[in-house]
Computed example of a mutant assay.
Amino acid sequence: MTDAELQRRCHTIFPGHRARPPAELFAAMAAWCELNAVEHDVYGAGSLLQDFEAKLARLLGFEAAVFCISGTMAQVTALRLACQDRGRELVALHPTSHIFVHERSNYQLLGHFKALQAGDRHRPWLVADLAAIPDRLGAVGLELPLREIGGQLSSWDELEAIKAHCQARGAHLHMDGARLWEAACGYGKPLNEVAAGFDSAYVSLYKGIGGLGGAMLVGSREFVDRAAEWFRRQGGNVIHRSPYVVAAAMQFEERLAAMPDYLRRTHFLCEALAAHPIIRVNPAAPQTNMLHLHLPVSTERALAIRRELAEAHGIWMFNRIAGAALPGTSSFELYVGDNLLTASDVQVRAALARFAQALAD
């Protein structure tokens, strides 16, 4: 039995949102399209897409937005243009930036810009991390929240100081806002207040929102128009964006409204985890609805435990597992979404007890 088949048989699933099978998802999309008289866009021209772009631009407080087929393309394009505008090719990024960790050196191999690591990889940025850089920066890329360290955020005062520092230094400040919806909830601030002071931002249409894929890049009208042209040059000019927009738009308001519930559920989860010190949590107190759980077993043993719990008890603890710094240890990312929101307190506590016992054994 495959992992996907095994997970579908489980009744207590910890990570993320419920994965809807294609037939169910496409049926929901079709019903929403019929209800809203949706027409396909053609190479980006169409009311559904353009209205959704305008909606996200307004929500974040920017002049314009443009759809991009992937955040990977959106991010490096935005930073490339920012560096061109300032005649400086150097971008400062956190050591755990998605661009470093997951994008296969695209910025370097494709000649977009040059990048340097700033700050400590185990904590969010302080303004002092940027002030310590003597070079003239073209851009600064700031991820909110930092996924690779458990969804942590710079404090609000530090974030405001970073915005002011970049403005005074003449550096374009770009936000990797793949999880901006979660960050805004963590700060307890409106989206446009979090985004104020950034020159551009990228947001995901599938991560917290649960769509099929795709991204939006927001900024000034002139900046967004230039980015759209670069998306075409890089093969991003798909004929119909409508499937991605429908999958996001039909649940967008519902997902944003649920973010406070996800965060409250994450606080409950941390309280429940306190009874099982064999599982180490980073951060100790959640800042968003995301955590990293560190285990005293190897990745192979963790995967074996996951299968045992799924087969014997209908519990699915995590999706992907990674080796940790110390030998024989591992960790996984846990995004708290609909699955944990709908599980009862009793289910969650019982599942954690079984998981901790298996780790101890």
Rank of each mutant, 00 (worst) to 15 (best):
135 D>H: 07
316 W>K: 08
192 N>C: 13
13 I>H: 07
84 Q>K: 15
7 Q>I: 12
309 L>F: 03
266 T>A: 12
291 L>K: 05
186 G>A: 13
140 V>R: 00
331 S>M: 11
31 A>G: 08
258 A>H: 01
120 D>I: 12
113 F>M: 09
146 L>Y: 05
199 D>R: 06
229 E>D: 10
50 Q>S: 08
222 E>C: 15
194 V>L: 04
118 A>G: 01
43 Y>G: 07
43 Y>P: 00
214 G>M: 13
28 A>I: 05
30 A>Q: 15
34 E>S: 09
322 A>C: 11
328 G>D: 05
223 F>I: 13
38 V>N: 01
63 E>V: 11
60 L>Q: 04
342 T>K: 12
44 G>E: 04
19 A>D: 08
141 G>L: 09
360 A>W: 02
238 V>E: 09
98 H>A: 14
284 A>E: 11
14 F>T: 15
51 D>R: 09
294 H>R: 14
41 D>L: 03
105 S>D: 15
227 A>T: 07
230 W>M: 13
219 G>V: 12
143 E>Q: 13
104 R>H: 11
84 Q>P: 02
37 A>E: 13
144 L>M: 12
134 P>M: 11
105 S>E: 14
168 A>S: 11
299 T>F: 03
327 P>D: 11
232 R>C: 12
35 L>H: 03
124 P>Q: 04
176 D>E: 07
134 P>C: 11
177 G>W: 05
189 K>M: 12
278 I>C: 12
196 A>L: 06
104 R>E: 14
173 L>R: 08
70 S>F: 00
248 A>C: 14
333 E>L: 11
96 T>C: 14
143 E>W: 00
211 G>R: 07
11 H>W: 14
103 E>F: 05
228 A>V: 08
295 L>V: 12
244 Y>H: 06
219 G>S: 09
56 L>H: 04
323 G>R: 15
354 R>W: 04
70 S>K: 01
182 E>W: 03
245 V>G: 03
338 D>V: 06
347 Q>K: 13
12 T>D: 10
219 G>H: 04
322 A>Q: 09
30 A>W: 04
152 Q>A: 12
164 A>Q: 14
58 R>C: 10
341 L>Y: 04
326 L>G: 10
164 A>P: 00
219 G>D: 07
294 H>P: 01
117 Q>A: 15
129 D>L: 03
281 V>F: 07
56 L>G: 00
135 D>F: 07
